[in-house]
């Protein structure tokens, strides 16, 4: 029993790209301590696309930045756990090794294309700098590649000398994407790549990401609020709440038979046209505050099926099928 478990683990480890183990992250600033991530476990295999879904403040961006070891200095701290990339601990890497990994092996697309490009450098340079750094080539050579990359995402190559302000939001996000993919990384992290864009552009960007992910055969960690995006792009999905992953499994199972009441709420929520973006009808109440998290299940205050146990004890991950697990006391009896 034990032996087979071990074997199984080794077998899967060989094609594991990323493994996050029991990650805990805190932000410490003048205002107090925010526990942004509280024990996240997540594994990504070669070529796989995994979605990370949750409301604002769930800790998605924090998780993503932890993978690159780029939490804001002096405020963000990884307090527990580890992150393995290609079976090497990211936290133990030297700064030089990290810089080789960032952009070279892991690319990241940021949420807001309007703020994530430097306004005083040309877009060409901002893509070229990745190539210069990781391929060790000169800007002139790099520009040839940049032109091709721009053309690939539908921007005329001649525009490489444009500054970000000369481009539309959608075009800027394309630049963000090719900068992340320029060195064919094994893993692409996309942090809400479409939230800042309008609907028609969103679809184009998603189509592009789908195409590029297949072309570059990279693994994808897709962070989003939007479940529609997940069903389009991903094979598996992790639902995040209060810095924890509350449900994890194949997209099909989770979308057809969600087990966590939070997931259920997300799936049945109808986004209201008025009010803030995150207000969802089936999910009353406010997102858990990272500075003052409730005891027990982080979701219990908003849960319509809250048990006595939920208020004091944190639910463990219950395995429902091979492809589906959930952290909810309500399903304890069913397993």
């Amino acid at each position: 029993m034990k032996a087979t478990g071990l074997l199984e683990k080794q077998a899967t480890q060989s094609d594991q790209v990323l493994r996050i183990e029991n990650l805990h992250v805190e932000y410490r600033s003048g205002g107090g301590i925010a526990k942004a991530v509280n024990g996240v476990n997540l594994t990504l295999h070669k070529g796989e696309a995994v979605g990370l879904v949750g409301e604002s403040g769930a800790g998605k961006t924090t998780t993503a930045l932890s993978i690159l070891n780029l939490l804001p200095e002096g405020t963000g701290y990884i307090t527990k756990g580890d992150i393995w990339f290609n079976n090497e601990s990211v936290l133990k890497k030297s700064e030089t090794e990290l810089n080789k990994m960032r952009g070279g092996q892991i690319g990241m697309v940021f949420a807001n294309p309007l703020t994530s490009l430097n306004p005083v450098f040309t877009i060409g340079h901002q893509v070229a700098m990745v190539l210069m750094k990781h391929r060790g080539i000169k800007e002139k050579q790099a520009n040839e590649t940049v032109k091709q990359l721009l053309e690939m995402v539908g921007i005329p190559g001649a525009r490489l000398n444009d500054y970000p302000y000369q481009l539309s939001g959608g075009m800027r996000q394309r630049v963000g994407i090719i900068a992340a993919l320029a060195c064919s990384p094994q893993l692409l992290i996309a942090d809400e790549p479409t939230t800042a864009l309008d609907v028609t552009i969103q679809a184009q960007i998603l189509e592009l990401m789908k195409k590029l992910q297949a072309e570059y055969a990279s693994s994808l960690l897709m962070i989003t609020h939007n479940l529609g995006i997940i069903s389009e792009l991903c094979q598996r999905v992790a639902i995040m709440y209060g810095g924890e992953i509350v449900e994890y499994g194949s997209v099909r199972e989770i979308f057809t038979a969600p087990k966590h009441w939070y997931t259920y709420g997300l799936l049945h929520a109808i986004p209201k046209l008025t009010g803030p973006r995150e207000t969802l009808e089936a999910l009353p109440g406010l997102v858990a505050n990272a500075q003052n998290l409730p005891a027990g299940c982080k979701f219990h205050e908003r849960c319509s099926h809250c048990l006595e146990k939920c208020k004091s004890q944190i639910p463990p991950m219950f395995k429902i099928t091979d492809n589906h697990s959930v952290a909810c006391w309500d399903v304890e009896g069913q397993v």
């Binding site: 780029l70 952009g103 994530s116 430097n118 306004p119």
Partner: peptide
């Protein structure tokens, strides 16, 4: 954001700060 974005491309801290 663009400072983090630059760092995420593998540009070293000193170069990010002093050049970009």
């Amino acid at each position: 954001d663009y400072v983090v974005a630059t760092r995420a491309r593998g540009i070293s801290k000193s170069r990010t700060y002093l050049v970009y």
